[in-house]
């Protein structure tokens, strides 16, 4: 099914304050689509986890915040990209409790659980791209 991007905004992630800005932009998009409070909170929380991953492990990056629509429904899609060291073992990184930093390892797996669609692409040495989508 064809997916149309109704609105798109790119936000840099290079400081801790940027994580707050990402959360706010995601909240605005979710509200603009009429997401209920629980759905808003889920996508905002997922965005916070992934933005922090991009900053802490990827050395910073960007997120594309998109309002998308196909024939039957609309949603918020977030595409995080960094040019960091990449993830050698994605399956391992998606395991609950796995962490390469000092977190609790809930970032990737938690963001996946809070989304309807989740895609990850990573190559050691080139960076990581994570895309999540939550439908209304």
């Amino acid at each position: 099914m064809a997916m149309r991007v109704l609105n798109s905004e790119s936000i840099p992630i290079s400081t801790a304050e940027d994580i707050v800005r990402v959360r706010q932009a995601v909240r605005r998009s979710a509200v603009s689509l009429g997401f209920g409070i629980v759905d808003q909170t889920k996508i905002v929380t997922a965005s916070s986890e992934l933005a922090r991953n991009a900053l802490d492990y990827g050395g910073g990056g960007t997120v594309q915040v998109e309002v998308v629509q196909n024939e039957t429904r609309s949603g918020v899609r977030l595409v995080f990209e960094d040019q960091g060291p990449g993830i050698p073992d994605i399956a391992l990184a998606l395991t609950d409790g796995y962490t390469s930093g000092n977190g609790m390892g809930l970032g990737l797996s938690g963001a996946k659980r809070l989304s309807h669609e989740f895609d990850i692409w990573s190559k050691p040495g080139s960076g990581t791209r994570v895309s999540i989508l939550r439908w209304k």
Partner: peptide, 13 residues
């Protein structure tokens, strides 16, 4: 907030 509690549990916390 209830929505925060729901999200935290789904997050795994």
């Amino acid at each position: 907030q209830p929505s925060v509690a729901i999200t935290l549990v789904e997050l795994g916390m």
